[in-house]
Design a protein around this nucleic acid. Structure first.
Lengths: 270, 270
DNA sequence: AAACGGCGTTCGACATTACCGAATGAGGTC
DNA sequence: GACCTCATTCGGTAATGTCGAACGCCGTTT
């Protein structure tokens, strides 16, 4: 078992710099010249060159044969997919997500909670979808998304406090929940009804319904949501959407080995 | 413009080691202890510890809170997706691929050629699909896959020679093409008919049809294929499959801005 | 046409720092 | 309770990552 890594043993500087270069290219999302990189990193050009040459040898970075600019390499895609494929919830959920999209013609997302934020790990778009804010691999705050609230609702109170203390409750729209008391009531309601609703809390005109997914041990490991323009997420159709996603959530949890038992929460699960 | 990087400028050793650790964890596809990693890398445990601590700080590596073992981190998934989203062929092709799967109920792949191999960058499975060898992010040889041959067929002869010289023509099944002369004839035929067939050349019982995708400049940038058990890929249905994929290939190329012009190859395209 | 600026790349010298081996303490197992 | 093995820490030393300067190349400016 790992000790608490005291404070900071000895981060190897050259490795840190190399990883920072990757982060830099990932953030800017465009090709950069050696000079730009060196300047942004505040290191000598020759130093940056050595780092880039090494990263290039491993295909973590590639260089345009035309203008010599540097960009992220193909190996990152490969390794990223290896990571993605270790989450079996992704494999298991895929066909269910497809069915949801087929049935309801709205966009469906699969997410996990990582470091207090919602991380999108899969998505399937409907043909009639308008532009949605999310993309696989992206992050969004938890307190103002349907999936985020579904995940927060199943966290120990201490963990919830810690996350909100770190991340805050930023406002995105009129409807965003920005105080802790309201959020706690909302999460209680979500626990009772088993699903959560994002009513234009992160983006005007966007409504979502989300449910948590549980693994074999009963732990909430992820969540799915259906997102659509508010115009299509009302009335009888909205009820249909809610029914569908609740059923799908239970199906996926079941596929992961979750067996709901009356009173399991009393005994603490697993 | 980049010079030919002489032979080996100065690979920064600590960075190389760090990246090798990632490769190691990616290859083994399982959690590893610090000791295992140090032994495999032939470095002192304390050295491996420093490298791992640095990688962990950047979330390229994470450590199990239970047994202290190390595994690939979430940041690799994030960065990998950034890379994936820079290939616009992926975005553009997605709905067309979905339509193909809906219409034909077979598995569809999207691939690019990288370093002489076929790299799978997207896939959509049909419900009735049996176990296919591919996974997004994986590589397969070019000479024995439908997509591979479609891509090879559109390469300059020198490039083709170089690839085969490096990679060879390994046999996987009875039908695998293993000599250069036969391959060249096959590629010529593919150029003429505009599509390629993999007739159980990499896996017994698996048949594929593939077509190249061209971007706005006329360059072949990727390929798509339909794969299915030979039993379902025969007779009239097989003809339907071929018609469908040819049309889809042209549609995707068109979406990327490709405008076929009579005699464009004479004038050099663009 | 000649001078300039910016590009990626190379080189040598210095001093930082990454490396190793040994030691520690915690968790299991016999 | 002795004996593993694990992750983690520490200090000395030699290796090496870093910098600045210089090179050759290209496109634009003068």
């Amino acid at each position: 078992m790992p000790k608490e890594p005291s404070v900071m043993s000895s981060p190897i500087k050259s490795v840190s710099k190399a990883l920072k270069i990757i982060d830099l290219l990932a953030d800017n999302k465009r090709d950069m010249t050696l000079g730009e990189i060196a300047k942004e990193m505040k290191i000598a050009k020759s130093t940056a060159y050595g780092l880039l040459a090494t990263l290039r040898d491993f295909n973590y970075i590639e260089q345009s044969p035309f203008d010599g600019k540097y960009r992220l390499g193909i190996r990152l895609f490969e390794v990223g997919n290896i990571v993605a494929n270790t989450w079996d919830v992704r494999q298991v959920a895929a066909p269910y997500i497809q069915s949801l999209v087929d049935d309801l013609e709205e966009t469906v997302h699969l997410v996990i909670l990582d470091k207090g934020e919602v991380l999108y790990i899969d998505k399937r778009e409907s043909k009639q979808s308008f532009r949605i804010v999310s993309q696989v691999g992206n992050r969004l705050p938890a307190h103002c998304t349907g999936v985020g609230k579904a995940l927060l609702a199943n966290l120990p109170a201490s963990e919830l406090k810690r996350i909100i203390a770190t991340k805050g409750l930023n406002r995105y729209t009129e409807n965003t929940i920005t105080d802790m008391k309201t959020l706690e009531e909302e999460l209680k309601k979500i626990r009772l009804q088993g699903y959560s609703i994002d009513n234009e809390e992160i983006m005007d005109g966007l409504r979502c319904v989300a449910v948590p997914i549980r693994d074999y041990s009963g732990r909430v490991c992820s969540a799915i949501s259906i997102s659509g323009p508010t115009a299509r997420m009302v009335g009888e159709r909205f009820n249909t959407v809610i029914e569908h996603i609740i059923k799908t959530g239970l199906d996926i949890s079941g596929s992961l080995g979750f067996r709901p038992i009356v009173g399991r929460d009393v005994h603490g699960g697993a």
